[in-house]
């Protein structure tokens, strides 16, 4: 049996899982309901999303969340019967996460 490179992907899955578990519920309430209802002024959001530290945090959260999701979706599809195409499936999932991260970098930088 060859050594596994799963620890690398699993570490990102774990870090992303933790950060999304902590932050997503409140973020979804804010950006999905409070902001559309007009509860947050544009100037507030403008200051927030242009702050260098906040931008860096958003990039970090996006990166870890995308790789968390990619890893989970990859293994779920495998469990649901895509075992024979496990390698291309993994490449596809992580490539999508990488593309998402590059887009996130373009958005915040």
């Amino acid at each position: 049996m060859r050594p596994s490179n799963e620890p690398f992907w699993w570490a990102m899955f774990g870090a992303g899982g933790m950060i999304t578990a902590l932050l997503l519920p409140v973020l979804i309430i804010l950006t999905g309901f409070v902001v559309p209802a007009g509860g947050v002024e544009f100037s507030q959001l403008d200051t927030l999303f242009n702050n260098p530290l906040v931008r860096l945090i958003i990039l970090g959260v996006a990166f870890l969340s995308f790789f968390h999701a990619a890893h989970r979706i990859r293994h779920t599809l495998k469990d649901l019967g895509l075992r024979s195409v496990a390698t291309p499936l993994a490449v596809l999932c992580y490539a999508a996460a990488l593309a998402g991260t590059i887009w996130a970098a373009m958005v915040v930088l």
Partner: peptide, 28 residues
């Protein structure tokens, strides 16, 4: 496990919001 799909979709929605806010008041 499918919550991962929701996570990915939400991050896309969040990034769209961030990008529109940074475009300026009109885009927002």
């Amino acid at each position: 496990e499918l919550s991962a799909v929701a996570v990915a979709v939400y991050i896309v929605l969040l990034l769209l919001l961030v990008s529109q806010v940074r475009e300026g008041r009109g885009a927002f």
